[in-house]
Structure formats: C-alpha cells, structure tokens
Design a protein around this nucleic acid. Sequence first.
DNA 1: TATGAATGAGCCTTCATTCAT
DNA 2: AATGAATGAAGGCTCATTCAT
Lengths: 201, 201, 201, 201
Amino acid sequence: MSPKIIDKDKKRQEIIRAAFEVFGRQGVFNFKMIDIAKNAGIGKGTLYEYFASKEDLISGCFNLHMEYFGQTLKDKIESLSDPGDKLKALIELTFEYFASHQSILNAMFDFRALSVQGKGKESAFADFSVMYKKYTEFLASVLEEGVKIGRFRPLDAKFTASTILAILDGMMFQAVLGVINIRDKSIAEKLNKALLEGILK
Amino acid sequence: MSPKIIDKDKKRQEIIRAAFEVFGRQGVFNFKMIDIAKNAGIGKGTLYEYFASKEDLISGCFNLHMEYFGQTLKDKIESLSDPGDKLKALIELTFEYFASHQSILNAMFDFRALSVQGKGKESAFADFSVMYKKYTEFLASVLEEGVKIGRFRPLDAKFTASTILAILDGMMFQAVLGVINIRDKSIAEKLNKALLEGILK
Amino acid sequence: MSPKIIDKDKKRQEIIRAAFEVFGRQGVFNFKMIDIAKNAGIGKGTLYEYFASKEDLISGCFNLHMEYFGQTLKDKIESLSDPGDKLKALIELTFEYFASHQSILNAMFDFRALSVQGKGKESAFADFSVMYKKYTEFLASVLEEGVKIGRFRPLDAKFTASTILAILDGMMFQAVLGVINIRDKSIAEKLNKALLEGILK
Amino acid sequence: MSPKIIDKDKKRQEIIRAAFEVFGRQGVFNFKMIDIAKNAGIGKGTLYEYFASKEDLISGCFNLHMEYFGQTLKDKIESLSDPGDKLKALIELTFEYFASHQSILNAMFDFRALSVQGKGKESAFADFSVMYKKYTEFLASVLEEGVKIGRFRPLDAKFTASTILAILDGMMFQAVLGVINIRDKSIAEKLNKALLEGILK
DNA sequence: TATGAATGAGCCTTCATTCAT
DNA sequence: AATGAATGAAGGCTCATTCAT
C-alpha cells in the first residue's frame, strides 16, 4: 500500500501529457521548462522531481509514446491471423493513432530531427534507427508470411516493407504540414486498396 | 553590376556551403554562429554583413537549395515529353541529388521541423508547405497528362502524387537514419519499376 | 522538563554529530541540508524542527563544540595550580581534542572563513573574534600569573599569548592540510619544551 | 605588434583586482559573478572571455597572488646572504605584503578552506598543501644553513620551520579576525626578536 | 511529531548581436 | 569591408524552506 508511488507515476504521465501539448504548440526545440511546468500546473522545480534534465524529459516523452504506440500496434495485430488484415490494420492504426494524438505527431518529427544528430549522441534517441529497423523487419515478416501462404504475390519483402514505412512516414509529415488531412479516413482506405491491389494476388 | 557584387554573391554562397557542412555535423538546432564563421574562415561579425540574423542565414541556406533543387528538376523534366519518363526522372534525380549532397539531406529534415512551428512563424519557413503543395500539383499534372494521353491507367492524380512524394520523403528519412543506402541505385530503380508497373497500362 | 525535552536534546546532538561527519566529507560550504538529514537518518523537514535554518544549524554545530572544547580546557586547567602546568595542559589538550575529532578540526577552518564575513553578518559567527579575545585574555592571565609568582621570565603577556594561540592555530591548519600529523605526540611535546624553555626561568 | 594580447592580459589583471575587492567584502563563498563584473565595470558575459568559469576565476585569483607573493619573497631573500637576515626578511615581508593587501589576506583564508576539500577535488587548490611543503622546506634550508655556519643554535630544522610558518599563519588569521593589527610594525619586530633570541647563539 | 513533495528565488553560463576600430 | 571584444537577455538547474498529511 504505497499510494505515493502511484501518484508519482500518475504525475509523471500528466507531465508528459502537458509536455506534448507544449511540444505541439512551440516545438521540441523551442520550449522552455517553465512552459511545461505552467501547462502542467506545477512549479518549475517540481519538474526536476520527475525528470533529471530537459533532455531526460524529452526522451521520456518520446520513449513513453513509442512504447505505447508499439504496444497498441502489437496488441491489435497479434490478434489477427491473415497477413492482409495485418497490413491493413497496421496502416489504419497508424493513421488513427496519430489522428487522435495530433500533438504527438508534430513532436515525432522533431524527435526524428533530434535523433539524427546533435544532442542525441548518447541519449535514448539513438534508438530511433533501431526502432525503424525493428518495424521494417516486422513488416517484412508479415509480407513474407503472406507470400508463403500464397496470399501475396512474390515480392521483395525487405524493399516493400521499407517502402510502406516510407509512405506512412511521408504521409504523416504531409499531415503535419497541413497538406493532407489525416482524419480523412478515405486516405488510409485508398492507401490500403492501392497497396493490397498491388500486393495481393 | 560592379565586381564587388559578384564577390558578395560568391562569399554568400561560400558561407552557405560552410553552413551546410556545419549543419551536417552539428544539426540545424545546435550550431552556433561562430561555428559557421570559423568553418567559412571569416570573422563572426562578417556573417552579419551577409545575413541579417541567424534565422535569415538558416532560411537563406534552405531557400537557396530548394531553388537549386527545383531548378535541377525543372530543367531535366521539361526536356522530357513522356510523362512516364518524367516520373522516372523525378525519382532518379531526387535520389541522385541528395545522394551527392548528404549534408544537405540531413539538414532538410531539420528544416522541416523548423518549418512546422516555433521560430517559423513569420519566416521563410512558412513556405515549406507551399513548396509541398507546388510539388504535389506538379506531380499531379504529370500524372493527369499521362492519364489523358492514355499512358497511365485512370487514377486519383492528387492522391497518387501525394503518395509518391510521401515515398520519396520517407525514403530520404530512412537514408538519414542510415537504414537504407541512398547511393544504392537499385532502390530508385525498384521504386520506379513498382510505380510504373502499378501505374502504366 | 518532560522526557520529550530530553529526547529533543538528544536528537539535536545526534543531528550535530551527523552534521560534523558531513562537514568533514563535503565541507561546510558545499553540504546540502538533505545530506545531513540522510546522514542522521531523518527526514529533511525534521531538521527544521531542531534548527531554524541552515545557518542556525551551522552555528549550532560550531557553538556546541566551542562550548565543549572550552569546557574541556577549563575543567582540566582549573584543576591545576602551576601556570607552567596550565600552559602545558592547554597545548596538550588542544592537540588531543582535535586529534580525536578530526572531522571537527576540518570544519573549524571552514567556520573561521564563515565567521569573517559573508553570511556572518548577524549570526553567531560574529563571536569567533570574541572567542579569540577571550582565549588570549585567559592565556595572558596565566602568563601574568606565572610572571608574578616568578615562574616565568618577565614577558609581554598579551603578545606572548597571541603568539601561542597563533602557533596552535597554524599547527592545526597544517594538520588539516596533511603537512603534519597531529596524532604525533612528539609535536606537542617539542612545542611545550620550546615554549617553556623560552618562557621559564 | 599585437596590442590586443597586452590588453587582454591587463584586463585579466584588472578583473582579478576587482575580484579581490569583492572577495574582501563578500567572501569567496558568497560572491556572485555579477558582483565582480559590476566591480570591474564590465558586463557579466565579458568575465567569461577571461575566465572559463566561476571556479576558474577563483583559482586564477589565488594562483596569481601566490605566484606574486612567492616571487616577492624570493627576490628579496635571495639578495640576502645571512640566514638571520633571511629569516627576518621573511617575517617582515609577509606582514608587509598582507598589510598592504588586506583584501587578499581575507581571501587567502577562504582559499584555504576551499583547498582542503569540497570543490577543490581536481582543481588548482589541491596545491595548497604542496605550497606549504615547499615553504617549510625552504625555511628549513635557511635554518640548516644558519646552523651549519654557526649562526643559529642547533635545532630541529623541520619542526622549527613548521612552527614559524604556524606562527605567521596564525597571526595572519588573528589579523583577519581583527584581534591584532597587522600594520602595527612592532608585532613583526617582537616576533623577530623573540625568534632570533631563541634561535641565535 | 515527522515527513518529503512542492516550490520559486536565485545564479551560472551561453550565445546572438552590436559596434568601435 | 572585416573584425572580434563586449554585452545582457534568457534559461536550465539547484536547493533551502514550507506545509499538508
């Protein structure tokens, strides 16, 4: 019975939520610690009870949501057996997830910039490419499975996986730019149709 | 049109070149003005003879290369008449351009982050989405032209254009992450093949 | 005079003991309140039940030990009648006291720095010079007594007292620096011998 | 012809001078960088053109004056040949130096506190005990020389050197406390007389 | 009484920009 | 035109102190 720990965890989550709001408004490169504190309704010093530094807070936000997004995908997709359904679900979930977490979506692209160089040297951001590799491999395994059971045409699984990820990624960025509307369900549908018609036998 | 003006322009270009080197090394979010001055072999104050501010320097770098890249595409593509060739050239040129300007590629993704919000309020970066729209429209017009002359199957030109851009964009990012090798010519080829087989009659 | 008061006093002493350990390790200028709380095995807030402020805690530590040291000297010296023995005892006791309270010795020199200026404005530290004057006067009275009864040669009591104190002080500092070993009994002996041979008839 | 270097050095000295004034007023433990900047009549940022950090400034001040004091002693004492004169000069010079640099004297005792522990871990302050050893050895060599040539009585050179240093040190501290007046020339004289009468044959 | 989570005043340090030379 | 010394606004982080439990 240690309610303090539960509170601590809740508060950490609440800070991360507040942080994403700030990221969405001011960007991951321009926000100040005080902005997040104010947005979370706490004092500046309190932030440092939950995060060791500004960088720790940023990577904490990133890690939490990558984990959460990954888990969301995993849970849904593992419940499906047909590789075609899996592919479809993957695309739909990605659109849905970021459609309902617009502020996280914006931040993701800042995280990507952070992950590539600069401060990210030794930090958790080094994992961005690891994450990409993992997703590509997962996608490739779905594709290979589909090919094996004769559900998909023969294809270069690795290349196709990479391409699908690229499309999703590129689309997300266009959503951030406001060029396309991620909430428009027809986009995911059209994408699914195009991909499946191009891949399915 | 005195020689001085030419010198000024040359020096500006030289500073931009030096800046991209620094961006590639330290990122667009972490570099200091002094870094670029040193890299360009000039004094700190001299930078301000050529750029009004740090932000002006960043957007100057961005704009110059977008212009240059756009011109490169335009020159090549306008010399072609077949929409299929145009599409092919677009993809190949994009890969080639960034394959031979790796440091610019890295910086582009930082520019994107900058363009979305934060400092970008009033700056030249607001044009990032404008540029995207322009490219999508251009691509769509190529596609529509191809459809009209019966070279491409009937398709949703706007959606397809958006998707192609997304693929290119996503691939570029994977290159930055080091997950794919942009210099590998077979990638552009495979992409072309897939797209054209999916689009061509 | 309830038992609670006794407990309070005990705990205060215990905190002071813990504080000196911390002083010895981290110095009187760098320690944090939390360090002492942890070292005393109590909560941060509890410190403030026993000391009104950080400065109060520091001066509390200082005062307690000056009192204790003063009392130790007094008890011993008042039991002696011969001024020569008194002088000898003073030197031996000083060496012994700090030899067996190394961490206090270290802290004393920090206290001295504190006492001179800075925070010391209104604080108990202003008494450092008062204490010095008192000791000099006491020492001078011993010397004068010795001169009066013909035990010491005629001498400038005030100056000699000041010099003896200076020697003790300077030696203590060399002990802190690790240049001499305060536990080496021969030092106090040599000092005594030199002083007494120089002072005694 | 590089006047800039000369200026830089001069300004560094000027900052150090201003710093000692501040040390004397506020102590080495309580001063703020802005205090020194204001006292030197420069901007806060300018300090960092001359010193890498607060700690660097402190140790810079300390080192400069130890060097200067050491040089002052050396110059004078090496010009003398008689060990008795050397000893006399050492004492007089020490009193004179700190009598005319009261603010430095105050700061020295803070430096000592710093040197013993805390921040001084890896810093230049670790040299305080080295300096002490050097002085003790120098003093011992003067004493041994005096004994050898029959100017001094036989004595324990190391112990006597240590004691003389202790007296000087202790006296300086009493001066800081305001218990004795360092400008009172009779003190150095009395000390010299006492020492020489005790040491000389 | 004991606690430790919360707080914010305060300070070191950075760095874009200016301007005298 | 070119420079770099000087600047000070700005912001991350610390830590003594408070106070609700």
